[in-house]
Simulated assay, not measured.
Amino acid sequence: MSEHGTVILLHGFGMRPITMLPVGRSLHRAGFATLALPYRSRLHPLEQIVDELLPMLNGVKDGPVHFVTHSMGGLVARALIARARPKAMDKVVMLGPPHGGSEWVDLLARARISGTFFGPAEEVLSLRRPERVESLLGEVDYPIGIIAGNRPTGVPIFSARIMPGPHDGKVSVAATHLRGEADHIVMPVSHMAMIWDGAVQAQVVHFLRHGSFAQETEAKP
């Protein structure tokens, strides 16, 4: 157990815990212990995901306990915390979280192929999230910092037709905001690149240490 606590790492949709390895390495260098939890984003509804993660979360006995998430992992973290908040719960940092949903999901829904691709995650990631799912996410009354990206990869002209405002290629900057957030910054990274970006990792560490992001995005851990 690290003196700085344990960071629960939650990956994004369709990913695996290993995708959080770059962030985990940065946290280890900064003196945090980490635990990357797996969940089946394409196969299981949010309720079942939480049920399956709870025993692993309960295995973290000593605090403080932090969360660092990417994409859909932020919504999973909210549901986990709402269901069974760790006694030594501390800070949360989310990278590209689709709190307001993703336009891509609704685009595929209109084409009637989203269910095949996203499975049960469709209702979690949709702009028109069902009230049943929304209620699982709970209210934010804990320190949460959000990092959004505004440098999409691919064909910018095409993605701009789907998301007219600033976005990271998957999630709009506007959709990353959440009522109750302690801090929010926008960085020049794409949705997937933010996991690997050193400046983003430095901001993650800064928030876990201080409860706010650094003024300079080039800050080092």
Rank of each mutant, 00 (worst) to 15 (best):
P45G: 03
L46M: 14
V50Y: 02
V50H: 07
D51I: 03
E52V: 00
E52Y: 04
E52Q: 13
L53E: 11
L54W: 01
L54A: 06
N58Q: 14
G59P: 01
G63N: 09
H66T: 05
F67L: 13
V68E: 05
T69S: 13
T69A: 11
T69C: 11
G74M: 06
L75H: 03
L75P: 00
V76R: 03
A77M: 14
A77P: 10
A77D: 07
R78G: 09
L80I: 11
I81G: 12
I81H: 07
A82Y: 02
A82C: 06
A82D: 13
R83G: 08
R83L: 06
A84R: 14
A84I: 05
R85E: 08
P86M: 05
P86H: 06
P86Y: 06
K87A: 13
A88V: 02
D90P: 05
K91H: 11
K91S: 14
V92Q: 05
M94T: 14
M94R: 02
L95N: 06
L95H: 04
L95E: 00
H99L: 00
G100Y: 01
G101R: 05
G101K: 01
G101C: 05
D106A: 05
L107E: 05
L107R: 12
L107C: 04
L108H: 00
A109S: 13
R110V: 15
R110M: 15
G115T: 09
F117P: 01
F117L: 15
F118P: 03
P120M: 08
A121E: 01
A121G: 09
E122S: 12
V124F: 09
L125K: 00
L125T: 09
L127T: 12
R128E: 15
R128Q: 13
P130V: 11
E131R: 15
E131H: 11
